[in-house]
C-alpha cells in the first residue's frame, strides 16, 4: 500500500493535512436504475413484442386458443387496462411523490439542523425507511392504519389505495431526505461563511442563499426517485389495490386464464411502464450531465 504522510504514516509537517479521499467511495451511484433505463435503445419494447409473438407460436400449436385470440383479447382490454389501470398507477406515484417530497424535504432539513436531538431523530427516520424493504413498509401501513379516522366528529375513510400511497411515500420521503441533505452539504462552506460575514441569520442563509443553489442539483436525483417509485407501484397489487397488475389479472381470468394471455398482457404492461419512464430517465440523465459539471 502506498504510504501517505499524515494519513497512514507519520506526518512530515505539524500543519493540518487534507486527507486524500476516494471519490467513488463517498459518492455511491444513485442512478444505477435510471442510467440503465436511459441507455436502453428506444426500440427495446419492439423486441419484447417480437418475443411475445414468437413464444406462443411455438407453445400454442396443440391448443385451440391461438396467439391471435390472445392479442384479440388484449386489444379489447387494453383501453380499460390503460385508463383504469395504468393511470391509477400514475396517480398513486404522483400522490406518493408529492407526499414523499414534502415530508422528505422537512426530514432532510432536520438532518442538517443545529439542534442535535432534531438532527438525530431526522437521521434515524431517514435511515429506517431508506433501508427497509418497500413491501414490508407497505404491509405495515396496510395493517397498522385504521380503515377510517374520526377528526372532530367527521369520519374520514382511508381507502386501501390511500394506504398504498402512504406506504410508498415513506421510502421516497427517506430518500428525498438524503437528496436534500446531500445537496445542501454539497454547497461549499465558503458560501455559509460569506453569508455569515454579511450578518445573515442561519435561517436566512439556508433559505435565501444555500437552498436556491440546491434546487437545480436536486432535480435529477428527484426525478430518478420518481422513476423508481413509478416502477414500484405494481407492488400495490399485493395490497389488493385495483391498479394495472390487479386489473390485468382479473381481465385474464375473464378470458378463461389461457396461458397464451400471460406474455401479451404482461408485455403490454411492460411497454406502458417503459413508455412512461423512458423519457423521464433520458431527461434525468441529460439534466444530471448538465448540472454535474457546474458545482
Amino acid at each position: 500500500m502506498r504510504r501517505v504522510a499524515g494519513v497512514n504514516a507519520p506526518g512530515r509537517t505539524d500543519l493540518p493535512v487534507l486527507k486524500p479521499y476516494d471519490v467513488k467511495a463517498v459518492t455511491p451511484d444513485g442512478y444505477i436504475f435510471t442510467r440503465w433505463v436511459a441507455t436502453l435503445p428506444w426500440w427495446t419494447p419492439a423486441l419484447v413484442v417480437l418475443a411475445a409473438l414468437l413464444w406462443p407460436l411455438i407453445a400454442s400449436a396443440q391448443s385451440g386458443y391461438t396467439v391471435y385470440d390472445a392479442f384479440d383479447a388484449l386489444w379489447r382490454w387494453s383501453p380499460f387496462l390503460l385508463w383504469s389501470g395504468f393511470f391509477f398507477n400514475v396517480l398513486i406515484s404522483v400522490f406518493a411523490m408529492a407526499i414523499g417530497t414534502v415530508f422528505g424535504a422537512a426530514l432532510g432539513l432536520g438532518q442538517i439542523s443545529p439542534n442535535r436531538v432534531l438532527r438525530l431523530a431526522a437521521w434515524f427516520f431517514t435511515q429506517l425507511f431508506r433501508n427497509s424493504p418497500w413491501l414490508v413498509i407497505l404491509f405495515i401501513v396496510l395493517l397498522a392504519f385504521p380503515f377510517q379516522v374520526k377528526v372532530f366528529g367527521v369520519t374520514i375513510p382511508i381507502p386501501d389505495w390511500m394506504k398504498g400511497v402512504i406506504g410508498l411515500s415513506l421510502p421516497i420521503m427517506a430518500n428525498i431526505s438524503e437528496v436534500v441533505r446531500g445537496a445542501v452539504q454539497s454547497v461549499p462552506t465558503a458560501q455559509w461563511e460569506a453569508a455569515e460575514s454579511l450578518a445573515f441569520s442561519r435561517r436566512q442563509i439556508l433559505w435565501q442563499i444555500i437552498l436556491p443553489q440546491c434546487y437545480k442539483r436536486m432535480l435529477p436525483p428527484w426525478m430518478n426517485w420518481y422513476a423508481i417509485l413509478t416502477m414500484a407501484t405494481p407492488l400495490c397489487t399485493l395490497l389488493g389495490i385495483e391498479e394495472v397488475i390487479t386489473l390485468s389479472r382479473q381481465a385474464m381470468e375473464a378470458e378463461d386464464n389461457h396461458p397464451e394471455l400471460l406474455v401479451p398482457f404482461y408485455g403490454f404492461i411492460l411497454i406502458l411502464f417503459f413508455a412512461y419512464c423512458y423519457p423521464i430517465a433520458r431527461f434525468t440523465m441529460r439534466l444530471e450531465k448538465k448540472y454535474a459539471v457546474k458545482l
Binding site: 465558503a190 458560501q191 461563511e193 442563499i209
Partner: peptide
Amino acid sequence: VGMVFQQYNLFPH
C-alpha cells in the same frame, strides 16, 4: 465588520 475572502465567495445564483 465587513469581510472579503480569497475566493470571492459571491452568491452564484
